[in-house]
């Protein structure tokens, strides 16, 4: 009996994780599946990869724990900014991340964090329309082609429901800023997005590209990189940035102030920026990275996936998505009301 209990205890203990030097949280599938193993081989640091589905999810976890429990987070720029304003982020020590030398100069001088003081960019891009050129008549060119679709594609359109991007589509179609905080303008966007709902197939932030490939959807509100997944399977899928402009989003890496292994956390970010690892990201995740060496190494993909080859000028023409401060509450409420209607 004692032996049995002992075995049980050992089994139970074996389900506890080994103590890791650093804990990183990233979106599922946003970095190489074996990144922690190769990182350990390269640096000897034991890392654990946690997964979050959305920015909001990891924000919820981190704010609830006062920033404890994680060392490095992958979050989109407005959320990095919010974490910084909450005083949860450590200052980035540039001496410990020599691989930042591979960055485009624009990536060192982003609107929300000039000189990369509290975040290091991982990938960047824009948001637009991903469509089946064989199912949509003409080339879509405006946000209104998404919000007020022509009769032949009514009910075959999907939109992102993540709060900033859902509202951005409405705001941009009305000619407003993606960082708008004026309640009456947000209300206008809300009304327009509620009307747009009746022509939607579904809200889809995760697998809209499969709907485009199967033909269930003809047009999707999409991040540039994810549109490439559909183009990869069906060359008729194209991506366009609407004429009203769009956002420049940056997915960043941040180090938590509460981290007790900041050197290892810096080493991890430095490892991610290694040209070989960044090249893997472009080849497999199909997002643009701010790493000159990686983009040059993958230039062969630009013909098949034109949005990867988008120039820095074209990309930075779009408005950088920033934290909206106290308007964040209003954003959350407005999105709840759109989805609830």
């Amino acid at each position: 009996m004692n032996k049995f209990l002992n075995t049980l205890c050992i089994l139970l203990i074996s389900t506890l994780p080994l103590k890791a030097d650093i804990v990183v949280s990233n979106w599922d599938g946003y970095s190489a599946p074996d990144i922690m193993e190769t990182f350990k081989e390269a640096t000897g640091v034991n890392g654990e990869m946690a997964i979050h589905a959305t920015n909001e999810e990891v924000m919820g976890k981190v704010t609830a724990s006062g920033g404890k429990g994680y060392d490095v987070l992958f979050v989109s720029s407005p959320f990095a900014e919010a974490l910084d304003k909450m005083g949860l982020l450590a200052e980035i020590d540039h001496a410990k991340i020599p691989n930042m030398k591979h960055f485009y100069k624009e990536a060192m001088n982003l609107d929300f964090d000039r000189g990369n003081q509290f975040q290091v960019p991982y990938a960047w891009g824009t948001t637009g329309l991903c469509y089946r050129s064989d199912l949509v008549s003409g080339t879509p060119s405006s946000w209104n082609d998404l919000l007020e679709p022509s009769d032949d594609i009514k009910g075959k359109v999907t939109m992102l429901s993540t709060d900033r991007w859902l509202l951005a589509a409405g705001l941009l179609s009305l000619g407003y800023s993606v960082n708008e905080t004026d309640p009456s303008k947000l209300n206008e966007a809300k009304e327009k997005l509620i009307l747009a709902k009746k022509n939607l197939l579904a809200y889809d932030d995760t697998v809209f590209y499969t709907k485009l490939v199967s033909g269930e959807a003809a047009m999707a509100h999409a991040w540039d990189g994810w549109c490439n997944y559909a183009t990869w399977e069906n060359p008729d899928v194209k991506f366009v940035v609407p004429s009203e402009g769009s956002d420049l989003w940056v997915d960043t890496m941040v180090i938590m102030k509460a981290s007790s292994n900041k050197d290892e956390a810096h080493a991890f970010i430095n490892y991610i920026l290694d040209p070989a690892i960044s090249t893997w990201t472009v080849e497999n995740i199909m997002y643009k990275v701010p790493n000159v060496a990686a983009m040059e190494a993958t230039s062969g993909m630009f013909e098949q996936f034109p949005n990867l080859g988008m120039s820095i000028n074209e990309l930075s023409k779009n408005e950088t998505m920033k934290d909206v401060g106290s308007a964040a509450k209003l954003y959350a409420k407005t999105v709840s009301e759109i989805l609830a209607d």
């Binding site: 909001e56 993540t162 509450k329 959350a332 709840s336």
Partner: peptide, 12 residues
Amino acid sequence: NLIYDQFLSARD
């Protein structure tokens, strides 16, 4: 869904 959204997306 509304409750799920309040906890995970709206963070309210």
